[in-house]
Design a protein around this nucleic acid. Structure first.
Length: 882
DNA sequence: CGGACGAGGATTTTT
DNA sequence: TCCTCGTCCG
């Protein structure tokens, strides 16, 4: 038996080797879950299971990528590449694209993220002449999402009188109309939102039995990671696909189910053995991550939950230090104490900053921590806040790409028709929309085919629209003949985005440029990867004269990516700041959990129901079990919340830990004298209890939850509508320029607020590869000398390093040896001119028909005769001069 | 049409 | 606090 199996403990081994039939693997925190999963798949492959018959689903791209990489080291050759491994969304998007005709979608359908979806909801509300006071876009979007996650289509909704009764009760009687219109718009736009990917997969499998059968037959083995986080739609997909062969293996930990607010159903895992009778149960209970103290303390807490699969996690590691509890008078002091504690820890315990994480319940808490760390010169990085893909400039760029790829995408057109500002206002847009509707066209079709005068676009407006139409028209034409990266650059410039930001010269605009450039860089990396992979398979099979890597492909890929997928090589050795949610699945030597106060952690919003409280408890369990060597818990007696001082008591979770595991230098107040709060006071706006910590005379926070947000406690099966991060993403920057005392070399002067986004994005922006381009975009003054060392492109040409394949298409610049833009001239040593005959790896021999300077490179138009005329970037195309 | 100012709103967020 | 969005004027 292979070595990797030998190295597993007996339970792990059982779980890995028994791959026939249904299995439920309960994997406690730190129990080697990923290891088991990868070994199991590797083992299956070694037993002759065909890779393409294995479907392995995860929740994050990162998890999928890691797993695939690990499997690749365990099995021969490119075997792992044929596995169907990915997130639910990406795998089923792939299937939906293949089967899109059956559902009446184009195979290149756009994927709307939550912000796009919200915009569309707004539009639908407006179009129905409803007030967005009554119909709050966030609430409506959340309800639509919830319906979809529960497989309730608009038709089903219409047939369901109790749902509609609920709407009436909640004073949104016309919700169904919005839902219908929204769905229709999605369809007309050729777009699916995240939830549609799952819903439509279900519809596909429900309405096209032959399709279902096809995939049932193909996927003889199904594995699901983090099963406790599946929602109903995902659950039904698994059941359907798995019922033929019954080889369904789910892995998860009910104690770490923390996403119910997004529709995750802990029941799925609790019920698995009923769903798949005869399922084998494996409990991985040995924790390899943490000290005994930490594991035991975490057990104390989770024991208080009623609904769970009982297990007894244990650690064979050292007993370790007791968990310290730190009390502070204010949040500011708390942050300062933590910062200095971190400082001493790093100094005295011989650890790196990167071994330390500070976790908190809400993003708002990060600010104070940031300040404290900064004033002590402790490097840190923040996760959360606005992600790269949510930034305006990125969304704008993506919208251009989307429109070029999918001309039906009205949502994209609306976003960019006046971005950057070109004088096209609401009136004009309204006219276009009207004309489009009247003629049964998409807005782009209307703009590009109808006579401007005929749709009431007289004079100036008409001209401006025509200009816009020309840009998009030309870009669309280039789409099929131009490589993704080249087209990306074209889009960035011709749209005017780069030009506008370049002119502004504000810290924001510089950062925006860098972000755009980073996006372009990712296109380049993706394009290269694809070409390399195509080249690899071409040698194995036969050289298929592949079409060039089009931007379509990249777009489809990028739509499902998040920040977490971009690893940041330069973010080394920094303290990590993140919410507990984001920390799931990670581990650190030293973990600080801040803000352990009643109403914060556990959150006030969740404390109303037993289920809510249990989830908070699981969340705390997750937080604690991230720590390998030591955990420190802290709370503050008073805290600024929304500009007001509030007073709190220590979290009940602190007192749920057996004191023997704690290092407590003071009396822990009883946090559970919560009776007074149960019967007094409405849900929101409880006056700060005059506990022994409370200072008198501070009625705090009056009502900030607005009505209609939280559901009423008794409502039947309506749990937790409180979704949709209400416009909280953006932190696109305030102004105060503190000149960036923080040690990051290439940061633009970093104002406190925008620090988050920049850092969250990561240092990739400042990697050498991207820095060059950045300076091109930004203006005189920051520009670098044109001469750069012409390092030979490392990762290119031919040989991919070893078996280390498939780094995500999104590895940021510097990492995988992609050549810096400046290195271009090294490639073809210059002698290209119009008329030069060249050879391309894929298109064969051709002749250069045009040459044009392009930012840091040269753009070539090459006529390949039979293969057609292509626009290529010189540094990129690897042309051989003949 | 687009910038400036004030009101309102603010858990958590794998895709 | 501090960010986003909507309204009002130039």
């Amino acid at each position: 038996m292979s070595e990797y199996i030998q190295n597993l403990n007996p339970t792990q081994r059982d779980a890995a080797v028994n791959y026939q039939g249904a299995s439920l693997i309960i994997a406690g925190a730190g129990s080697g879950k990923t290891r088991v999963l990868t070994c199991r798949i590797a083992y299956m492959l070694s037993q002759g299971v065909q890779a393409h018959t294995v479907l392995a689903l995860t929740f994050t791209n990162k998890a999928a990528k890691e797993m695939r990489e690990r499997i690749a080291t365990l099995v021969p050759g490119g075997m792992s590449r044929s596995l169907w491994m990915g997130t639910f969304h990406s795998v089923f998007a792939r299937i939906l694209r293949a089967e899109s005709d059956k559902l009446g979608y184009p195979s290149s359908f756009t994927i709307y993220d939550s912000a796009d979806a919200k915009n569309l909801v707004k539009l639908a509300i407006k179009e129905l002449n409803l007030s967005d006071e009554t119909y709050k876009p966030n609430v409506v979007a959340a309800r639509i999402s919830k319906a979809k996650n529960n497989l309730v289509t608009p038709q089903a909704y219409e047939a369901n009188s109790s749902l509609q009764a609920e709407d009436r009760e909640q004073r949104i009687p016309q919700f169904l109309d919005i839902y219908k219109l929204y769905a229709r718009k999605c369809r007309e736009n050729g777009a699916m939102d995240f939830d549609d990917l799952l819903l439509n997969t279900n519809i596909l499998m429900r309405d096209f039995p032959e399709v279902l059968t096809k995939y049932q037959n193909q996927f003889r083995y199904i594995l699901v990671d983090e099963y406790q986080d599946t929602n109903f739609a995902q659950y039904v997909i698994i059941r359907r696909l798995g019922e033929l062969h019954g080889n369904v293996c789910v892995v998860g930990d009910d104690a770490q189910s923390i996403y119910s607010f997004r529709g995750a159903k802990i029941e799925n895992i609790l019920r698995f053995q009923q769903d798949f009778p005869g399922a084998k149960l494996f409990k991985l209970e040995q924790n390899y991550r943490s000290t005994q103290t930490i594991v035991n303390a975490a057990n104390c807490v989770i024991e208080k939950n009623q609904r769970q699969i009982r297990k007894k996690s244990f650690s064979a590691a050292d007993e370790g230090d007791p968990i310290r509890v730190i009390k502070a008078y204010t949040d500011k002091e708390e942050s300062a104490l933590l910062a200095s504690d971190i400082y001493t820890t790093v100094r005295t315990r011989g650890v790196q900053y990167s071994d330390v994480a500070v976790l908190y319940r809400t993003n708002a808490q990060s600010r104070a921590l940031e300040e404290a760390l900064r004033s002590r010169n402790i490097p840190y990085k923040i996760y959360g806040g606005m992600s790269f893909y949510q930034r305006k400039e990125i969304k704008d760029m993506l919208a251009y790409v989307r429109l070029v790829v999918n001309p039906r995408d009205d949502e994209a057109l609306r976003r960019i028709i006046n971005t950057p500002a070109r004088g096209i206002g609401d009136v004009t847009i309204g006219r276009i929309a009207g004309a489009a509707a009247a003629n049964g066209l998409s807005m782009w079709e209307a703009v590009s085919t109808l006579d401007p005068a005929a749709i009431g676009l007289a004079g100036a407006a008409g001209g401006k629209v025509a200009q816009f139409a020309k840009i998009i028209g030309e870009l669309s034409e280039m789409r099929s003949t131009t490589e993704a990266y080249t087209l990306g650059l074209e889009i960035a410039t011709r749209s005017g985005l780069i030009g506008t930001y370049k002119m502004q010269q504000t810290p924001e605009s510089i950062s925006a440029l860098e972000n755009i450039e980073e996006l372009l860089n990712s296109i380049r990396v993706y394009t290269e990867e694809q070409e390399r992979m195509a080249a690899d398979t071409a040698t194995e099979e036969e050289s298929a004269p592949q079409a060039l890597v089009q931007i379509d492909e990249w777009l489809q890929n990028v739509a499902l990516l998040t920040d977490m997928d971009n690893e940041n090589p330069e973010e080394r050795n920094k303290v990590t700041l993140m919410t507990v949610h984001s920390a799931k699945g990670l581990e650190f030597e030293y973990v600080y959990v801040a803000g352990l106060e009643e109403n914060l952690f556990p959150s006030m919003m969740s404390m109303g129901t037993p289920e809510g409280l249990e989830e908070e408890r699981r969340l705390f369990y997750v937080a604690l079990t991230r720590a390998k060597r030591a955990a420190v818990l802290s709370f503050a007696e008073s805290r600024f919340k929304w500009g007001e001082m509030t007073f709190g008591r220590p979290s009940r979770f602190l007192s749920e830990i057996d004191p023997q595991y704690l290092d407590l230098q003071f009396e822990l107040g009883d946090s559970r004298d919560s009776d007074e709060e149960a019967n007094s006071a409405p849900r929101y706006g409880r006056p700060a209890g005059p506990s022994r910590y409370g200072r008198p005379g501070t009625g705090s926070s009056q009502g900030y939850g607005q009505g209609g947000y939280g559901k009423r406690a008794g409502a039947p099966d309506t749990g937790g509508y409180g979704q949709g991060a209400p416009g909280h993403y953006g932190r696109s920057g305030s102004s105060d320029n503190s000149g960036g005392g923080f040690p990051r070399r290439t940061d633009p002067p970093a104002p406190g607020a925008r620090f988050r986004s920049l850092n969250a994005r990561g240092a990739a922006q400042s990697s050498p590869a991207t820095g060059a381009l950045a300076s091109k975009f930004s203006a005189i003054g920051t520009e670098r000398p044109a001469v750069r060392p012409t390092a030979p492109p490392a990762g290119y040409p031919p040989r991919p390093i070893g078996g280390a394949t498939s780094a995500s298409p999104h590895v940021t610049g510097a990492t995988n040896g992609s050549d810096p833009p400046g290195a271009s001239s090294s490639q073809g040593s210059g002698e290209m001119a119009v008329g030069t005959r060249v050879e391309h790896a894929k298109f064969g021999v051709g002749e250069i028909v045009a040459i044009e300077e392009w930012t840091s490179d040269v753009k070539l138009t090459v006529d390949f005769g039979a293969a057609g005329r292509k626009v290529l970037l010189k540094k990129f195309a690897k042309l051989q001069i003949l």
